[in-house]
């Protein structure tokens, strides 16, 4: 698992012919790529993998799922700020101005998708944190979580492919396959296991 969702993107990152940047900038890039890749991996670290995991391992997988969520969702939420962060240390436009330009470039569908994905991820994060305090049943929450996840990953992957600095052909294919695989797996789980909620999954 970790080999696929950490190793593969890292390998692709190291293979692409992008110019080297400062250590800070490259670290931020790597962190963001891994964080996003792990989001794709979340689809496989869930009930979706029940068939291949034993019950004990499933519990463990869900724990990891939570852990990854709590660590890497905030990183991705910070991702728009991380892009402009290095500007604090170099001459150029002010970071604040860069950020405002960044989130107001509505001519670009990629930016709009990014903002939507950011909001979805924010909702995913909050509803996960407050799951026990929400007045809904666990199973309902799970369905909502699944639907939100699919919406998020579709939009976020598209956003990443459209705008990602490191999105060369290999990285795009890799991310697309991972996303498609994750969504398929999730949909398959729901459709096979609980036919009741089938209607809600198709976007």
């Amino acid at each position: 698992m970790s080999l696929t969702f950490i190793g593969l993107p890292l390998l692709l990152w190291s293979l692409n012919d992008l110019p080297q940047r400062t250590a800070l900038k490259d670290s931020i890039s790597v962190l963001t790529i891994i964080a996003f890749s792990l989001m794709l991996g979340q689809f496989f670290l869930a009930r979706t993998s029940k068939n291949i995991l034993k019950d004990y391992n499933l519990t463990k997988a869900l724990k990891i799922h939570k852990l990854i969520g709590y660590i890497f969702v905030p990183i991705l939420l910070a991702h728009p700020f991380l892009i402009i962060f290095p500007r604090y240390f170099e001459a150029g436009i002010e970071p604040k101005e860069a950020f405002i330009t960044l989130i107001t470039t509505f001519e670009s569908p990629g930016v709009i998708l990014g903002i939507i994905a950011w909001c979805l991820m924010f909702i995913l994060g909050v509803t996960s944190l407050l799951r026990n305090k929400l007045p809904i049943k666990y199973k309902t929450w799970r369905v909502i979580h699944g639907i939100l996840s699919i919406m998020f990953i579709l939009i976020a992957t598209r956003h990443a492919i459209m705008l990602g600095r490191h999105m060369d052909r290999a990285m795009s294919i890799c991310m697309s396959i991972m996303a498609a695989g994750g969504i398929l797996l999730l949909l398959k789980t729901y459709i096979l296991k609980s036919s009741k909620i089938e209607g809600g999954t198709n976007e």
Binding site: P19, I83, T101, L102, T105, E107, S108, G110, V111, H166
Partner: peptide, 13 residues
């Protein structure tokens, strides 16, 4: 000028 990667299309450049 070599590459433009991660462009958001703001057009300032």
């Amino acid at each position: 000028i070599k590459q433009i990667n991660g462009c958001i299309g703001c057009g300032i450049c």
